[in-house]
Design a binder for these strands. Structure first.
Lengths: 216, 216
DNA sequence: CGTCGAATACTCGGTTCCGACTGATAGGAG
DNA sequence: CTCCTATCAGTCGGAACCGAGTATTCGACG
């Protein structure tokens, strides 16, 4: 329900590339460098391999084009790209769509949570607490970075809203972690019998989640 | 910092497969069916292609093994798998690690948010409101499903905690969406001048985010 | 009794992704 | 002046991913 027909380039790193080219033409290596300098590698997964692929894809799609390909000294040639008119339009369209319709994502954490049972009450509590610690740390880091940038007054809030989003999400996760950990302690979240066996790995633990099918 | 050396199978769908096999041996097609029946396809991305790949990978890794390969009628053969001792251990270890150490994920929404500027104040507000609507809908859906399952009393809470997590996260997102939309209305989130040009796509809009590098 | 759609059980092959590697140069240490 | 490291710019090949196809069988319905 939604997904408009299929986008020519789907890797969001492409969005970053387009974004960079909105400012001025550059070559891939410089893109990677800039993205890292600006800390945007917290938002986009920047890997050289993918970068070059994505740039090629954007070119095939006609959203960007090579402006010149020049060599300085005997270093490998570098290809400078710039956006096309189409690219400028698509950039906006792309952002718009990503905002309007939530993509279904499959966070690894959630898949693990759905098998929380396997750790047993104590193991689960321990693991959750450890995660909580790490989440608290990165939360603090982001909060601080955000505050510093804003207080320096160089950058308008608009350009760092994504940090506010990240903070909100991490806070929510932390809240959930704390609640669940507490509930394990008070047995408001209890381990039903069959699963405890399952955890011990007795191999033939019948009946897992809901009523289970035979192989037929 | 973290990522323990490299996991033999990384696709979380593998976790689902292991989970299924904890209950009883099955063949891939049945796994897919069961996962969908139980609505676990909201948590794991279930695509036939990947499923068969992942199963093969799990076998290579020695976490599962084929139990028998039988043919009913003249239908394609089906291969029934079962877990190995190693598989049972790794399953737990895997869940444990996924919980303990937050994987860095790159939600598409966040990448779009970091270019929210491109939509201009009105466009942004509109898009955010539309998303909010959709988020509210799926939130309601999950909440209701969760309530029904629990009230039926068949399934212990432990087996549906991931829904509680999902709800929390969606609520947080919704909260953020509402706040930001409001802030755009009251200009607490303002569009600095250069960007407005950028949005109109005047192509040569110098100076995007922070001070920008020349191509050198 | 024929046929049409759903279910059964997978295969295939094209993208996409990405980490490891290459190979050159500039700048500083000794 | 030589070596050593950091930076520069990108290639490459293998893994992962996934959607579209294939071929059979069962059951319902007119």
């Amino acid at each position: 329900m939604g997904a408009t027909s299929k986008r020519a380039v789907s890797n969001s790193l492409g969005l970053a590339v387009l974004g960079l080219l909105m400012e001025s033409p550059t070559h891939p290596h410089a893109m990677a460098a800039t993205l890292r300098e600006r800390g945007m590698d917290r938002v986009f997964k920047v890997t050289t391999g993918s970068l070059y692929d994505v740039v090629r894809a954007l070119e095939r799609a006609g959203w960007i084009e090579t402006r010149e390909t020049l060599r300085v000294g005997a270093r490998p040639e570098r290809t400078v790209y710039q956006h096309t008119a189409l690219g400028r339009e698509e950039f906006v369209r792309w952002v718009d769509e990503l905002i309007r319709v939530p993509a279904d994502e499959y966070p690894k954490f959630m898949s693990a949570v759905s098998y929380l049972g396997a750790l047993g009450p104590d193991g689960a509590a321990a693991a959750l607490r450890e995660r909580a610690g790490r989440v608290r740390a990165s939360l603090e880091e982001i909060r601080q970075g955000h505050r510093e940038v804003l207080e320096a007054g160089e950058v308008p809030r608009l350009f760092v809203v994504e940090a506010e989003y990240a903070v909100r999400m991490l806070e929510a996760e932390l809240g959930w972690l704390e609640e669940i950990t507490a509930d394990i302690g008070t047995s408001r979240l209890a381990w039903p019998e069959p699963v405890t066996g399952w955890v011990r790995g007795d191999g033939e633990a019948r009946r897992g989640r809901r009523r289970h099918e035979e192989v037929r």
